[in-house]
């Protein structure tokens, strides 16, 4: 299996800001690569370089066998891009938007028209197809933008934060579509701020910060580094606290943490919701009064905290400025 995307030592500076600071990545053909990072990490800059919109200050990259700078014009026929902000034309209808893209891929008038209808059908937009995009919802616009990226059925697809700003339902339906594409063998590079999204869609994930890859692996490998799921619960008395800590120890996959001031117990577990049920059963058997209990999944913040020692949020404020 050869690599669909390789980037070596990409550097991009905007004045004093170093957006990319020697970024490396490799994406084998037919796999999904997730670029996970907070705002300002350099995700969009990476996508813009790989899709020929921007020239790197240093380093080089190849996509589908083409150099992104030297062979930019040739490469464009082999990629599809859906940017962070839906690049659709408000005054055109959904069908006109896709037809235009088809013609600009040089599919010819007839094929462009047929392909547009096909995609509108597939993305559940057929009913709105002949209405100007102006009145469409955010989720519909994102789906249309994604459809635009697929018009030429490109072998390599770039999706920059495809679900940011969408409501949970629209997000779930977009995930389904992306999963289908992947099943058909498209190579996908996807950026996201959501661990859950990378987890759900990506074969391999690169965590980025300050324009560098700071961790790389499968979702499970990364979660292993971060600590995976954990049960967090609070009790009403110090006596219960000790009992609870003991009761949970056999369930935990690491050390159980007991916070005497907050009357809180934290236990890393595997098995998700089932583990929580078991834990609550044990606590009930020990007659512990539980005030609050929950299962916490690792978030981007957790990944960050464990990888960098600082929180993603603080990072955002610092770099966006």
């Amino acid at each position: 299996m050869s690599d669909a995307i390789t980037a070596e030592g990409l550097v991009k500076r905007y004045g004093d800001v170093t957006a990319l600071d020697g970024l490396h990545l490799t994406v084998p053909e037919g796999t999904v690569f997730g670029l996970l990072g907070p705002n300002g990490a350099g995700k969009t800059t990476t996508v813009r370089i790989l899709t020929t919109l921007l020239k790197p200050d240093a380093g080089h990259a190849r996509v589908a066998g083409f150099d992104v700078v030297r062979d930019a014009a040739l490469l464009r026929a082999h990629i599809g891009v859906s940017g962070q902000y839906a690049a659709v034309d408000d005054h055109l209808t959904g069908a006109e938007n896709l037809e235009m893209v088809g013609r600009l891929y040089h599919l010819g008038v007839k094929r462009s028209r047929r392909r547009a209808r096909e995609l509108l059908e597939r993305f559940d937009l057929a009913d709105a197809a002949d209405r100007p995009v102006q009145g469409w919802s955010g989720g519909m616009r994102r789906r249309l933008d994604l459809a635009g990226a697929l018009v030429a059925a490109p072998p390599v697809l770039f999706l920059d934060e495809p679900t940011t700003g969408l409501d949970p339902r629209a997000r779930a339906s977009l995930w389904d579509v992306i999963a289908e594409l992947v099943a058909e063998g498209t190579t996908v590079l996807l950026t996201t701020q959501y661990m859950e999204e990378a987890d759900r869609l990506a074969d391999r994930i690169a965590v980025t910060d300050h324009g560098r890859v700071i961790a790389l692996g499968t979702a499970d490998e990364l979660k292993g580094q971060v600590g995976g799921d954990r049960i967090e619960l609070s009790v009403t008395s110090a006596a219960d606290l000790e009992t609870a800590g003991r009761a949970l120890a056999p369930l935990a996959v690491g050390d159980v943490q007991v916070d005497a001031d907050a009357l809180q117990v934290t236990a890393p577990v595997t098995g998700g919701a089932a583990a929580l049920t078991t834990a609550l059963g044990r606590l009930a058997a020990e007659r512990v009064t539980v005030r609050d209990a929950g299962l916490r999944r690792p978030t981007l913040d957790d990944v960050f905290l464990s990888l960098t020692g600082h929180e993603a949020d603080a990072e955002t404020k610092e770099t966006v400025r």
């Binding site: 899709t51 020929t52 919109l53 014009a73 040739l74 464009r76 026929a77 990629i79 891009v81 940017g83 902000y85 839906a86 690049a87 659709v88 034309d89 408000d90 893209v101 600009l104 891929y105 040089h106 635009g148």
Partner: peptide, 17 residues
Amino acid sequence: QKGIFDRFRTLPMSPSA
């Protein structure tokens, strides 16, 4: 302002168009 030019520039179209 809208980013539609980004879409155009990733397409294999003539840049003068």
